[in-house]
Each structure stands twice: as structure tokens, then as C-alpha cells.
Amino acid sequence: MRQADRDEVKAASGKSPAEALLFSLRKSTLAWTGIIDGRPEVMFGVGDLNILAGIGAPWLLGTDAVEQHYRQFLRHSVSWRDQLLERYPILRNFVDDRNTVSIRWLRWLGFKLHDPVVIGGHVFRIFELRSSDVRYHDGPDGWVDAVGRGRGGAARAGVGGGQSVQRANHGHERPACGSPGEGCD
């Protein structure tokens, strides 16, 4: 696991990397593993934060391979974000303020970061994204949000990708790309 993720897990929960992954998987309604060059290098998912309000808590823990394959990761993360927004109109969680790579990625995906808060003696930032904040130009007829609301039809999240990245579904609803075990090409 990336050192920044290890530090964040320890600061947020006191758990070891393995304990944090198992806990996150158990609490998730959707979860996937990203396979890079045949090795599991990233695990990610979402759990219910507030079912009635439609708020999900996304999480992601990865190895250094994620940063080495960042272009592919970024392309695929847009698709992942959009799939989560189809289920949860609001995504919210917190990130360690020291985890600058994750903060840059969250901002790139469109998440808004709130002012720093201290939790258990460590500084974190709450991040949030609403489906209504993610807009796609849908041709000459107008714009739609991440779940297809608006003028002009369904939203599109074009995702390309290299051949070295695959996704594996952990038995929850839909895979991030294709069918379980298929590549995301």
C-alpha cells in the first residue's frame, strides 16, 4: 500500500493496511480491485453513509503502481466516479490533509474539499461531490449531469485505456469496466 494511504489509515482508524482493506470491503455496497499487469494494485468502493439522503462514502487504497500507471488510473477513475454517482447523488468522505496526491486526484474528479478539521489529533478534509455538479456537454442540445438528467439525453463517460489494467468485481452489482475479470480496454 502507498505510504500516504498507510499513514491515512493509521491516522483515521489505527488499523493496519490489511485490517483497513477488510473493514472497507465488509462495509461496502460496491467494491472492486484494480489489476495492473496481473497484480492487484488498487482496491476501491463505496459504502452507505445515509441511505435516505442518498449519500455514499467512496474509498480507495492503492499501491505505488497506481502512480506509475496514473494516466490509465485517471481515465478509469472518471468511469468509477460516474458509476457511484448513478447510485448515490452525493459522495462524501474525508482525506488526510497530508495526502496531497489523493487531494489533487479528488479535485481533478470534481470533488469539493472543505476546510481542514482535526479528528483524533490528525488533520483531515471532508470531500464531497454531488451528481448535479458533474456536467457533460451532450452535443448541440445541451448539458446533462452524471446520471443523465438535463437536456439532450443520457450522459456519456467515455473511457479509454491501456491493456495493462483490468478490473475485478467483488460480487457487488456491476463491475467498474466490462464483466468481472474483463479488461477495461
Rank of each mutant, 00 (worst) to 15 (best):
G110E: 11
R98A: 04
I35L: 11
S164W: 04
S28I: 04
E182D: 11
G178R: 00
V42G: 08
G34A: 12
R39F: 09
T29A: 04
D185M: 05
G150R: 05
G153P: 11
N99C: 14
A65Y: 10
R26A: 06
V101F: 10
W143H: 15
F73L: 06
V117H: 07
R2Y: 07
G158K: 10
K15R: 09
S28T: 02
A57M: 08
I119T: 14
G45N: 00
V159N: 15
H122I: 02
G34Q: 11
S179Q: 12
G148T: 02
V159C: 13
G139T: 00
S16A: 06
A154H: 09
S79A: 11
V9Q: 14
P40I: 07
E173R: 08
V165Q: 12
I36V: 03
S24C: 07
R107L: 06
A157C: 12
G142L: 03
G14P: 01
E128F: 04
W143R: 14
I55Y: 00
H114S: 14
E8A: 09
S24H: 09
P175V: 01
G178V: 05
A4C: 08
L129H: 10
L25Y: 12
E173G: 05
V118N: 10
P180D: 15
S102V: 02
A31C: 06
I90E: 00
D7F: 06
H69A: 04
R26Y: 03
G148M: 14
H122K: 14
L91D: 00
L61D: 14
E41I: 02
G153Y: 01
G62K: 01
D64L: 08
Q163M: 14
N169V: 07
T63N: 07
D97A: 14
G142F: 02
R98W: 04
L30W: 03
I35M: 13
A31F: 08
G162L: 11
D48E: 05
I55N: 08
P116D: 07
V134W: 10
R167F: 15
V101N: 13
F94S: 09
S102Y: 08
H69S: 03
A155Y: 04
V165P: 06
F73G: 07
S164E: 15
G142N: 06
P17Y: 07
V118Q: 07
R39M: 10
L74Q: 10
G45S: 01
R125K: 10
G120D: 10
Y136W: 13
V144A: 15
G45H: 02
L91F: 04
R81S: 00
R92T: 00
G120Q: 11
V144E: 13
